[in-house]
């Protein structure tokens, strides 16, 4: 018995869904081979959420800022703030891939479309909150 959701099923479901604030979603599988789904959010097009499903987890990722956007002398304070914020930030955690700072949430591969929608909405809210909170450390 396994009812693991596929990226295509998820895209179909998200297409019909909206955030609680009414924002429409535009899901698009941008990498068939690597199974990457891009979810554009109405009025927040600058911060899409990317979803990947692999054997071990469903990963929702949103991009924050790049290394060069950080005010150099504020870098340590920013990193410490991010570390401290990891727990209070609901469902999402911070990470870094190369020079790109990201915020992400990981779900079990058995999660259903509703749970993933909730994750995406929370992640999108958290993305905006995180940038607002960290604005002092950014150029």
């Amino acid at each position: 018995m396994n009812n693991k959701i596929t990226l295509t099923q998820l895209a179909d479901s998200l297409h019909k869904s909206r955030f609680n604030n009414g924002a429409a979603l535009t899901p698009e599988i941008i990498e068939e081979d690597l199974q990457v789904l891009q979810v554009l959010i109405q009025d927040r097009e600058e911060f899409p959420v990317y979803v990947t499903i692999d054997d071990s987890q469903i990963l929702c990722v949103s991009y924050l800022w790049q290394e060069q956007e950080i005010i150099p002398e504020q870098r340590e304070a920013l990193l410490e703030a991010l570390l401290a914020l990891n727990i209070p930030m609901p469902l999402s955690s911070f990470s870094k891939i190369g020079h790109q700072y990201i915020i992400f949430g990981a779900l079990s591969t058995r999660s259903d479309a509703d749970a993933i929608l909730h994750e995406i909405e929370t992640l999108s809210d958290n993305t905006l909150d995180a940038i607002e909170l960290m604005a002092d450390y950014l150029k």
Partner: peptide, 14 residues
């Protein structure tokens, strides 16, 4: 595998 897939996906996303 997870690290690998995250990085590959990241390249595509970037």
């Amino acid at each position: 595998k997870t690290t690998e897939s995250v990085h590959k996906a990241n390249e595509a996303v970037a």
